[in-house]
Amino acid sequence: MIQENQYFDGNVKSLGYATAEGKSTIGIINPGEYEFGTAQKEIMHIIEGSLSALLPDNQEWKVFNTGSNFEVPANSSFKVKTEIQAAYLCQYR
């Protein structure tokens, strides 16, 4: 089953699905800055574009380009920002 998700007045949209490895979402982030909370570990893969992330326990933003990824621990929050649309795959583990 495919689940549709929409956040921040439609500026972040994703489709959620499940496989034998676990749940994932694939989506698009419009230009802007957003803060997300996590219930479980998340692995964010940047499929297209570029975004900056302010990860837990960090004080500096780090840029992630197409082909890169970052991890966020469970029960935390992180911020992302982008000046162009960015596509991502988020795996929940």
Rank of each mutant, 00 (worst) to 15 (best):
S52M: 01
E48R: 06
E35C: 11
H45I: 03
G32H: 01
L89T: 01
G32A: 04
I43A: 07
D57Q: 12
D9V: 10
C90W: 01
E35N: 08
T38K: 05
Y34R: 01
Q59G: 14
L55I: 02
G32I: 01
A86K: 00
Y17D: 11
G22A: 11
I46D: 02
S24A: 15
T25W: 00
A87C: 02
P31Q: 00
P56T: 02
A39M: 09
M44Q: 01
L89D: 07
Q91I: 08
G10A: 07
E33A: 15
P56V: 09
I2Q: 11
L54M: 08
S50I: 03
F78C: 02
L89M: 02
I2T: 13
P73G: 04
E83G: 08
E83I: 01
D57H: 13
A87Y: 09
R93P: 00
W61T: 11
C90T: 12
G32Q: 03
E21R: 10
K23G: 12
F70Q: 06
E21F: 06
N11P: 09
P31W: 00
G16N: 10
Y7N: 10
I29F: 15
P31L: 04
E71D: 12
Y17M: 10
M44G: 09
Q85Y: 03
A18H: 14
R93M: 14
A39P: 08
T19K: 08
L55K: 07
V63T: 15
A39T: 14
N69Q: 08
E83M: 13
E4H: 12
L15A: 13
G10Q: 10
Q85T: 07
M44W: 15
G37V: 07
M44C: 11
I2A: 13
Q59T: 14
E35S: 14
G32N: 03
S14P: 13
G49P: 12
S77G: 11
I26L: 04
E33I: 08
L54A: 13
Y92C: 06
Q6P: 01
M44V: 15
G16V: 04
S14K: 04
Q59M: 07
